[in-house]
Nucleic acid binder design. Structure first.
Length: 360
DNA sequence: TAGGCGTGGTC
DNA sequence: TGACCAAGCCT
C-alpha cells in the first residue's frame, strides 16, 4: 500500500510527466463522446498501434451515432474485420440504436446510463466520461492494474484483488483534472511501467513505488498459474459447383466469431480421416453430398484458449440444396466476391490460397 | 465467479 | 517458439 500522504505528490508528478511525455493519440484531439466511445471499445484488449487505422476508417465510414445505428450489421462487421472480439462490433451497433431510440441520439452523461449500454463496463464508462466530459470517474484497465500492483506491491494477482485496485484508482484520480489523470496513468503503464523491463529511472512515481523500492518490479504484478491449451484438428471444405462458385456460410450471431463468414467444416473425431470428417461435417451442417478432392492448404491459428489446425481441401458439389442447419446463412459466391464478406483471420490464408491457385 | 471471446506483438 | 500480454465485457 502507498501512503495517503503521498497522493498529492503522485498526482502532481504524474500530470507534470504527462505534460512532457504524454502520447499524441487521435482520440485525444476530440471531445466527441461518440468518437471517444468508439476508441475505448476498440482499445479493449487491443494495442494502440493496431487500433489507429481502424479508428480512422471507422469515423469516415460511420461518422455519427445515427449513421452507425442505421447501418447494416454486415457492413459493421466488415469494418471490424481483423480486430477480433467481434461481439464488440455487434454491441456497438446495438448500443448505437439504443442511444438513438432511448437517448434521442445524444450520448448519455451518467455512469449508470453509460454502463447500461451493451459492451460498456465500468472501465470503458469511466474512460468515456472522463475523456469526453472531464468527469472524475476512475478506470481499471490492464495498464492501471499493473501500475497500481507495483505502486502498492500488491501481494496477490490483480484478478484476486479487483475491489482493492478500484479503491486505489478512485483514491488517486485527481478530482481537478480527471481527464488528464486517467490518460496519464494509462500512458505511464504503456510506456514506462511496462510488463517487462519497466523504465523505472524515468518514472515519476518511483519515489513512492513499493515494487521499485524493494526491487520487485520484475516479479510484480503476480501472475496466475496458466493451464495448457487444447489443440483441435479441423477439416475444412472449399466446395465448388459446376458454375465456378464457392460455398460459404455465415456463423450464428453469438459466440466464437459470431456473424462472420467462413468455409464450412468441423472437428476431426478420433480415428477419423480428414476426408471422412469433411464429408460428414458437410452432410450434417449443410445437408449436401460432396466429393472431397485435393488438399489446398493447412492453416495453424492460435486463439486465446485453444489452437486449431485447419486442413483445407477442395471439394465438388454432388447433390442437394445447401441448407443453413448449423449456421445463420449459406451462399454460393464468385471467388472475386469473397472480399465483400467479413472472414476471420484463419480464413484469410484460405482465400489467398484460392485466389492464387490455378484450379479456379 | 470463472471461463468464453481474436489478433498481433514481443522475447 | 511457445508463452505472455494488450485501454475488458458478458454470462
Amino acid at each position: 500500500m502507498f501512503p495517503a500522504a503521498a497522493i498529492p505528490e503522485l498526482r502532481r508528478s504524474l500530470l507534470a510527466w504527462y505534460g512532457q511525455q504524454g502520447r499524441d493519440l487521435p482520440w485525444r484531439q476530440t471531445r466527441d463522446p461518440y468518437a471517444i466511445w468508439i476508441s475505448e471499445v476498440m482499445l479493449q484488449q487491443t494495442q494502440v498501434q493496431t487500433v489507429i487505422p481502424y479508428y480512422q476508417r471507422w469515423l469516415e465510414r460511420f461518422p455519427t451515432v445515427e449513421v452507425l445505428a442505421i447501418a447494416d450489421l454486415n457492413a459493421v462487421l466488415k469494418a471490424w474485420e481483423g480486430l477480433g472480439y467481434y461481439s464488440r462490433a455487434r454491441n456497438l451497433h446495438r448500443a448505437a440504436q439504443q442511444i438513438v431510440t432511448e437517448h434521442q441520439g445524444r450520448f448519455p452523461e451518467s455512469a449508470t446510463a453509460v454502463e447500461a449500454l451493451p459492451g460498456i463496463g465500468r472501465t470503458t464508462a469511466g474512460g468515456i466520461l472522463s475523456a469526453a466530459f472531464n468527469q472524475p470517474q476512475a478506470i481499471l484497465d490492464g495498464n492501471v492494474k499493473r501500475v497500481l500492483a507495483r505502486l502498492g506491491a500488491l501481494p496477490l494477482p490483480p484478478a484476486r484483488a479487483i475491489a482493492q485496485l478500484w479503491q486505489w484508482s478512485e483514491a488517486l484520480i485527481d478530482p481537478d483534472q480527471p481527464r488528464d489523470f486517467n490518460q496519464a496513468i494509462m500512458d505511464l503503464g504503456a510506456t514506462i511501467c511496462t510488463p517487462r523491463k519497466p523504465v523505472c529511472d524515468r518514472c515519476p512515481w518511483s519515489f513512492a513505488c513499493a515494487a521499485y523500492n524493494t526491487q520487485m518490479t520484475e516479479q510484480l504484478p503476480l501472475r496466475e498459474a496458466s493451464s495448457p491449451i487444447p489443440h483441435k484438428q479441423i477439416g475444412v471444405a472449399v466446395i465448388w459447383n459446376d458454375r465456378g462458385q464457392i460455398l460459404i456460410d455465415q456463423r450464428k450471431p453469438e459466440g466464437l466469431l459470431g456473424g462472420l463468414w467462413e468455409f464450412p467444416g468441423g472437428k476431426i473425431e478420433a480415428g477419423e480421416s480428414i476426408e471422412d470428417c469433411i464429408r460428414r461435417e458437410i452432410q450434417e451442417e449443410l445437408g449436401i453430398a460432396i466429393a472431397v478432392g485435393d488438399h489446398l492448404i493447412s492453416v495453424d491459428h492460435t486463439y486465446t484458449h485453444f489452437r486449431v489446425t485447419l486442413h483445407v481441401h477442395y471439394c465438388q458439389h454432388l447433390e442437394g440444396e445447401p441448407q443453413a442447419i448449423e449456421c445463420a446463412e449459406v451462399r454460393w459466391v464468385e471467388p472475386t466476391e469473397l472480399s465483400e464478406f467479413a472472414f476471420p483471420k484463419a480464413n484469410q490464408q484460405i482465400i489467398t490460397a484460392i485466389l492464387k491457385s490455378k484450379v479456379q
